[in-house]
Amino acid sequence: MRGFFYVLNSMAAELNAKAQILDPPTIQRALTRIAHEIVERNNGTDNLVLIGLRSRGVDLARRIARELLLIIGAEPPVGALDVTLYRDDLGKVGPQPIVRKTEIPFSINEKRVVLVDDVLYTGRTIRAALDGLIDLGRPRLIQLAVLVDRGHRELPIRADYVGKNVPTSREEQIQVLLTEEDGEDRVVIVKP
């Protein structure tokens, strides 16, 4: 009986196969490259701020800030933005999502803002983030950096800096694991 369940379990695991698409060194290299691109595109980091979307976008923003420090010797300020109060799907499914704190302890007026998120998918989160940012001030410009772009946009939004483009089907899930939150660095694709 036990053996039977074991077989069932491993079958289920296979059906739920997780394919790794980014390993720790690749994530590291992608962030280093994004940092270089940010410097190149903005002619340095004067007036530049990084704003990560809660929660993994914030970790990525901090890492990019450290890369920038290595490249040009100055670390731009990093803020955290929670977009829950700007979402367009509230009340559509189940209870209200948890609102976390937006912490942007500097003015974004006339700044070059790089928004940072882990996965770009429908674009709705970024739409919410743009609304949220504009409520906080009037940046000079806003750019977008993501670790993974998985396609399937539902809004006219694109990223300026992409770690990796990953073609997916809508049924698949992308999981970004980061040491700060999950104890390891890994991006996997979960097939249904």
Binding site: D82, T84, L85, Y86, R87, L90, I98, V99, R100, K101, T102, E103, D131, G132, D135, L136, G137
Partner: peptide, 23 residues
């Protein structure tokens, strides 16, 4: 606890220059 934690996030909105979110 959920109410108190949510209130903590709301306090940030209450301290902004533009005190309005669309939720």
């Amino acid at each position: 606890r959920l109410i108190l934690d949510t209130a903590e996030s709301m306090k940030e909105v209450a301290r902004r220059d533009i005190k309005k979110v669309p939720t």
